[in-house]
Computed example of a mutant assay.
Amino acid sequence: MAAQEPDRANRSARRAREGRPARAPTIHDVAARCAVAASTVSRAFSHPERVNAATRERILATAAEMGYRPHPLARALPSGQTRMLGLLVPDITNPFFLGLIRGAQRAAAAAGYTIVLADSDECDETELTALDRLTRAVDGFVLASSRLSDARLREADSAVPLVVVNRRVPPVPSVLIDSAPATKRAVEHLASLGHTRFAYLSGPRASWSDARRWRALQSVARRGDLDVVRLGPLPPTVDGGVAAADAVLAEGVTAVVAFNDLLAIGVLRRLRELGVSVPGEVSVLGCDDIFGADFCDPPLTTLAAPIERAGRAAVDLLLRRLDSGPSGGRHRDVVLPATLTVRDSTGPAPVRRRDERRNEPTQVTATS
């Protein structure tokens, strides 16, 4: 095998003379230089304890000199690990997930792992397809705001280790951003400003967070004798908020609570086009405190979520599952609190509308 080395060297020199880029060295190039079998080079990287110490050091030094780096999937064949983690999000263009991706990436890199990112485009079938295609390429998955059913998530978890973000599907470990207490404070904030009737712009029908937020709003509204109208489900985008703003005005509410900041920003944009003052005529409140929420006109009152921290926690949970083996690392949730951040998009209810509704009966309704 060593006799092949001059031929490879001659081919590399010929490439250089012809101005063609030199190809990346392969495991066979390293083996030829060291006069060993390619399988010995592979073991030096994947199972170093099975290679003679002197031979192993010569192989590693030669590989470093030649610039050879073993492919992660090739290394996974003997070791059973790729050192890669899958991260699936429903909408990569949503700034909420940028913080989560950043947190997951930093936690993975610190542990020597690489993140493989996939966008399911708010579609459960696309999400399931990505899971199927990536299962052999990664050691485990973080699924953020998954749109899959509980049954499908449990089935997937039986095939590859999972951690879910903003879902609770026992026994799958999860990271939950608990917005219920902050939602209560948001309603109390609006009530303190004199608002007695407000709208909730709901998110995707399959969103677990949306259902929890709606239940919290209903509970607080009933206790406070307030009237809350549900509009949706809506796509959680700026365009979704623009489309919903006219329905908000038709409902005669004085405040809006949106499923996320993108919907709230869309409402702000449309109300501005219509000449409706915010917060003079309608107050607007979002959720997530994404990048840019404080740059709106007016700056957006919102429920701030520890998004990057959630990404780090999800990867930490997944790595603990991988370290503990098939029987460990399950039945655990990490709960992170959201907080109310008050800015200029909420203010006192209009006096005229407040007076008009003073003697009207209150109710909690849901409009789809």
Rank of each mutant, 00 (worst) to 15 (best):
E188S: 11
V257G: 00
E188M: 10
R167K: 04
E251G: 03
P171L: 05
V256D: 07
R205Y: 06
R147E: 07
D227G: 03
L190H: 08
S158Y: 04
R168C: 10
D139T: 11
V160I: 15
R215H: 14
S149D: 11
G241S: 07
G224Y: 07
L134Y: 09
G194W: 06
Y200I: 03
W208Q: 07
F259L: 03
P173S: 12
R154C: 12
D246S: 11
L231D: 02
V138R: 13
L162G: 08
S174Q: 05
D225M: 08
A156T: 03
A258P: 00
Q218V: 12
A255N: 05
L231P: 10
L226T: 06
V138P: 02
A244L: 07
A180L: 09
A244R: 10
G224S: 14
S202R: 10
V175K: 13
P181I: 02
A221G: 09
W214H: 12
R213M: 04
A159M: 14
V175F: 12
P204W: 01
R154W: 06
P161Q: 06
V238R: 13
A191E: 11
V172T: 12
L153M: 13
R205G: 01
E188W: 06
R205I: 00
D239Y: 01
P235M: 04
D210Q: 10
R222N: 14
F259H: 14
R222G: 15
V142H: 09
A156R: 14
L153H: 02
